[in-house]
Write a protein that binds this DNA or RNA. Structure first.
Lengths: 190, 190
DNA sequence: TTAATGTTTAACAATTTTGTTAAACAACAA
DNA sequence: TTGTTGTTTAACAAAATTGTTAAACATTAA
């Protein structure tokens, strides 16, 4: 892998996987095994590296949604597939969304462009139709989407805290996460 | 309010309410309207201020749980009350848990002591009993707890991102959040 | 009043983090 | 070969952030 890509991937590793949102350029360089100046050579500044990582995170998030949510398959199968795809990514990058939130909340971050996800809008429409059909309980499709994402993401994101609060081992927690898919499906389609 | 308390409250405001996890001591001092040296006077170092805020966040989280989860009231009423209490706090401090996670993930943070929550353990036992009674669907009480916290917290935490992805206004989003309680109760007790 | 104690501030010092530069190095074409 | 281009590094410079100090200030007790 070329160094530019290596730096980006390492930054994502630190931010999204390790949840180390305070990483300095030196720490990123060390983790990547490259000279810190290379970060400035390829990205000009720390801030531009962050912006690049941010943009790619949003893009990859959206392209993931695209990949599944446009599929013309049975709704129940689509949800099942979606949970598979999304939770696989969650386990790899549990803190990606947390990074995005932190950056959005950060002062110097002014992203003017619209980042609306067409795939999500399309999915919400489909959810509405399934509610009419009676496949799932009626309600606001957005709330259905909230429920779905919440049930997948939150236990993964909160792992370090819940492990402390409940004194649960790594293995036990991983087992609990692995069981989530079926639990979510039960919740949705009871 | 005395300055020491003011500094702590302001730090919590920045971290927990605004989600501004990168705040410097100068920014905290400015937001509090005090001289930055006061932070060193009262807390010795930036790190100790962070540790203090962290500890108080964990303690207040646990004491909140205590306040509700030990109540000897009907289970359904207890859940209803718990959602009220917890979501009220969530709206005030949406990023408190995110701050905790970020600090736990941060390298220099080695919290050795057990922070296990007796109230949660007690609650899990009660959930198990209610499952036996048939009030709620059978399963692992921890998973029930995961569902409950996820459904409350996640849509609140992800507000900035979901507003972008779905192009939703402040008012609309707030309305959606306000509707959450009933939706969660429906999910749980269908 | 003075003395003692705690609080607050500005100025300074130290440290950490980031950014720049020039030179070394590598690959490759002319 | 030489020259050109892009890559990598160390050394340096600049900026940002944190920590320390001494003096000013306030409050209260003796």
């Amino acid at each position: 892998m070329n160094k530019e890509e290596l730096i980006k991937q390492t930054a994502k590793e630190l931010f999204f996987s390790k949840g180390y949102l305070h990483a300095t350029t030196q720490e990123i360089a060390d983790a990547a095994g490259v000279n810190r100046s290379l970060i400035n050579y390829y990205f000009r500044s720390r801030d531009l590296l962050f912006q690049t990582v941010y943009r790619e995170a949003v893009d990859s998030l959206k392209s993931q949604l695209d990949k599944v949510l446009y599929d013309k398959i049975d709704f129940q199968a689509k949800i099942s597939l979606f949970i598979d795809v999304y939770m696989k990514e969650l386990l790899k990058y549990p803190y990606r969304e947390s990074f995005l939130i932190t950056e959005i909340c950060s002062k110097n971050f002014a992203l003017k462009e619209k980042k609306k996800s067409a795939a999500l809008v399309h999915f919400l429409k489909e959810v509405g139709e399934e509610m009419d059909k009676g496949t799932i309980k009626k309600g606001d499709p957005i709330q259905f989407m909230f429920n779905l994402f919440a049930l997948m993401s939150f236990p993964v994101i909160m792992k370090p805290l819940y492990q402390k609060l409940l004194d649960i081992s790594q293995e036990k927690y991983n087992t609990l996460i692995a069981e989530r898919k079926q639990i979510i499906l039960d919740q949705i389609f009871n």
